[in-house]
Amino acid sequence: MKQHYSVALLVETSSSYGRQILRGIQRFIHQNESQHWIAVIEERDLNSGIPNWIQDWAGDGIISRHASDEIRKEILELDIAFVDLGDRQESGLFAKVISDDAAIGRMAGEHLRERGLSHFAFCGFQNEAWSDRRGSGYQEYLRSIGIEKVHTHFVQWCDQDAKGRDVSEVSLTQWLQQLPKPIGIMTCNDVCGKHLIDCCYKAGISVPESVAVTGVDNDELLCDFCQAPLSSVIPNAEAIGFHSAELLAKMLADQSLRSSIETVTISPLGVVARRSSDMVAVEDEDLANALRYIRSHANQGMSVAQLVEHCGVSRSTIERKMRSVIGRTPQQEILRVRLRHACTLLAGSDLAIDVIASKCGYAHPEYLHVVFKRELGVTPGEYRYASRNN
């Protein structure tokens, strides 16, 4: 017989990130065979905090994204099962499940480096731990490939009045104007990315030709509202929700686990490339032309022969230039682009695998299985399951 528990979900409904966390929690509830949860949920934003009714609430557990150090101490006094999803401050009072922000930064760095850029920058939010971690991961990746200089700028995020926003915009615009060009900029999230692209547009700085931009969260509505639709790293927020619910269920079943203070980090899924980073900053025109063509046509089933015909130079020339600059043959680059797109669709959509195969340029779904087993050691279905549960 199932045990019944009342669980409060204090997660913002105002952002795509929060809603994806809630979807992951919902998926766990539907799969939970030993417990029945009555979920208490209400409309919230990230600054809502812990509601007053919690102090007198006769519930069993809480999953929360809204926890300052003071509120965490109040929760301790309630002696209730609690999983902390807050990432705005460092804290060691409770078990946490959060995005692997360092991995997000590395992924953004890899994406921008693939554009052939030599100059890089990071724009983050002041006094936000998750933003700092993403910036650190980004800079560590760039240092690992020999790029020491990364320009940085920080702006205020929440609770900013109109005057403060104007000051922030002036400062950001001045910084953008002083940067070497072309340059790749990682912004800590899509809100920051849109703000930066707006400043570029007002200042007459072309995106992506002079400034290539990548955000984080893949908030599709926000990304598409940008003058140049914003490329974005996809955190696995649904997996965060699933793992937090799984952890809370263990605490509800075994009270001794409530004192756990482990931190689980969830890896990002990939990058959705949009126009804000759709550029190739390599000096060789033949190579730049080839790379642009591959990124535009790889998922349409293109061949190396078609690439050579488009570029108007010999196959040996294209082979030599690609090997010397990016370390891959044209065929390897086509495969890499297709495989990355397939991984993104498997992790971030519910499309059938045969549909994904078609969208990635494979005439037969069976060949997608062959490529996945050869390159990643798993089937497409196994990759989808692992991406949503790890």
Rank of each mutant, 00 (worst) to 15 (best):
Tyr5Lys: 15
Tyr17Pro: 05
Tyr17Thr: 08
Arg19Val: 10
Ile25Trp: 07
Arg27Leu: 03
Val40Leu: 08
Glu43Asp: 10
Arg44Gly: 05
Asn52Gly: 04
Ile54Pro: 01
Arg65Ser: 07
Ala67Gly: 09
Ala67Glu: 03
Ser68Phe: 11
Leu78Pro: 08
Arg88Leu: 05
Gly92Ile: 09
Ala103Ser: 15
Leu112His: 12
Ala121Phe: 10
Gly135Cys: 05
Ser136Lys: 14
Glu140Ile: 09
Glu140Cys: 02
Gly146Ser: 10
Lys149His: 13
Phe154Asp: 05
Ser171Gly: 07
Gln177Ile: 09
Pro180Lys: 15
Pro182Asp: 12
Met186Phe: 12
Cys188Asn: 06
Asn189Tyr: 08
His195Met: 13
Lys202Ile: 06
Thr214Ser: 10
Glu220Ile: 11
Leu221Lys: 04
Leu222Ser: 03
Gln227Pro: 12
Ser232His: 04
Val233Leu: 02
Ser244Tyr: 12
Ala253His: 10
Ser259Glu: 08
Ala273Val: 11
Ala273Ile: 07
Asp278Cys: 04
Met279Pro: 00
Asp286Tyr: 12
Arg295Cys: 01
Gln300Arg: 15
Ser303Leu: 05
Gln306Ser: 10
Thr317Pro: 00
Ile318Met: 11
Gln331Val: 04
Glu333Ile: 01
Glu333Asp: 02
Ala342Asn: 03
Cys343His: 01
Leu351Ser: 09
Cys360Leu: 05
Tyr362Ala: 00
Ala363Ile: 09
His364Lys: 15
Tyr367Arg: 12
Arg374Glu: 04
Leu376Tyr: 06
Gly381Glu: 05
Tyr385Leu: 08
